[in-house]
């Protein structure tokens, strides 16, 4: 799914200043894009505009060259899945099975097909053993995995992770990050992950850094994550390893280049 922002301006009703003005970018079909920014940078607003929960004050949003409007939104939204921040606010079923079924029922998928879809995607997110469990028996990471299964079952072309790990413990965060990586490797989907964690941007094809409503960095993780000063000025914190790399840059010692190369490699594999 190709997403295009053309000169988009958006302002919340209650705020004095727009979140962004004349924001333009294109996300190509089938790519994984990380949108990074500190809390309040406007990154989540982008997600809400893409899925049509918010409407721009000016400018256009095009999805596969079709403009997002009141007339087109219903059809387009069926092709998108979004995983929100709070695992408790998006669990609608009484059991894991019901929760994954929710979206399918809304789309009137026949029962037989539905049963198969649920099994298939629960297996994929490693929650098959929990199908009859209720949400209070699940950890935050498991709930988010169920949300992912629900989105996958809809077989949408685009999945957006809107700060999906920010309320999870490190173990849950790791689970969801691994899930994102495997989605990227095994499906032909477009993925957008919106986050303030640099760790979650490492595996993306492209990283966009947002600050004060402007795109201040845009490129591959290898390029973007080296921009220490801009990242910090954008309210982001360097991963410990990146910080060490930056300090080593100025030093001179034995095996410097091989150590730095190895560190990069380790960071990208984390």
């Amino acid at each position: 799914m190709k997403i295009e922002f053309k000169d988009v301006t958006f302002q919340y009703y209650s705020e004095e200043k727009p979140v962004f003005e004349h924001l333009s970018f294109t996300i190509e079909q089938g790519t994984t894009t990380a949108i990074l920014g500190h809390n309040g940078s406007g990154k989540s607003t982008i997600a809400k505009l893409i899925v049509g929960l918010l409407v721009p004050n000016a400018g256009q949003i095009l999805i596969d060259d079709v403009e997002l409007t009141e007339q087109t939104i219903d059809e387009i939204r069926k092709r998108m899945g979004i995983i929100f921040q709070n695992p408790d606010n998006q669990f609608v079923g009484v059991t894991v099975r019901d929760d994954i079924a929710f979206g399918l029922e809304n789309h009137q998928v026949p029962r037989e097909e539905m049963i198969q879809q649920i099994e298939k995607y629960a297996t994929l997110v490693d929650m098959k053993d929990y199908l009859d469990k209720s949400p209070e028996k699940l950890s935050g990471g498991q709930k988010q995995r169920v949300a992912i299964a629900g989105a996958l079952a809809m077989e949408t072309e685009l999945i957006i992770f809107d700060e999906s790990t920010s309320m999870l413990d490190p173990k849950g965060t790791k689970e969801i990050n691994q899930m994102m990586r495997s989605l990227k490797e095994n499906f032909q989907k477009s993925i957008i992950t919106i986050t303030h964690q640099l760790e979650e941007a490492i595996f993306a094809d492209r990283v966009m850094v947002l600050n004060e409503g402007k795109i201040v960095l845009d490129g591959t993780p290898q390029v973007v994550l080296k921009e220490k000063d801009i990242l910090e000025a954008s309210g982001l914190k360097l991963i410990d390893g990146l910080d060490v790399l930056n300090r080593l840059e100025k030093d001179d010692f034995d095996h410097k280049s091989s150590i730095m190369e190895a560190l990069w490699e380790l960071i990208f594999k984390m």
């Binding site: 910080d243 190895a262 560190l263």
Partner: peptide, 24 residues
Amino acid sequence: TSALLAKGLKEKGLLDYQRLPLTK
């Protein structure tokens, strides 16, 4: 994180230490 990286470097034979580094 820093300890993981230190271990990774040690396994590659690029770093040695008596005490495992824990912070950046």
